[in-house]
């Protein structure tokens, strides 16, 4: 599925057409960086409550399709800067992580970890 569909389901708006066309293959939800690094599959949507710049470093290392910061937390300034630098789509929402995942599941997206 395309990232555009995911963003629409979460009522998130962007007007970068390149971002809209990004391929999404699954999702992963965790706040433990080592867990995400070890297990999240490439081209996943990563849902987290962490807001610091290392989130972007990890997202880039795992080829995440996008990062959604849930629960009304806002990314730190350095996090936003790094996301732009590394070309990682980064969003924040007032929806809780539970509700973000629920909406994406309803779209047909499934949890995907690296070793199946």
């Amino acid at each position: 599925m395309k990232l555009a569909e995911v963003l629409e389901a979460l009522s998130l708006a962007v007007d970068d057409p390149e971002m809209h066309n990004k391929e999404v293959e699954g999702g992963y939800c965790s706040d433990l960086l080592s867990d995400v690094m070890a297990k999240a599959a490439a081209r996943s949507i990563w849902v987290t409550n962490q807001v610091h710049p290392n989130v972007v470093a990890v997202a880039s290392l795992i080829d995440a399709a996008a990062v959604i910061i849930a629960g009304g937390m806002k990314p730190e300034e350095e996090t936003v800067k790094k996301a732009e630098e590394l070309g990682i789509p980064l969003f924040s929402t007032d929806l809780t992580a539970f509700d973000v995942v629920g909406r994406l599941y309803a779209l047909g997206l499934r949890g995907k970890s690296r070793n199946g």
Binding site: L32, S34, H52, N54
Partner: peptide, 15 residues
């Protein structure tokens, strides 16, 4: 609290 220190680093490197 930043999501580090899960004690998974060295085991993940080994794997």
């Amino acid at each position: 609290e930043m999501g580090f220190g899960a004690g998974m680093g060295l085991p993940n490197i080994q794997r």
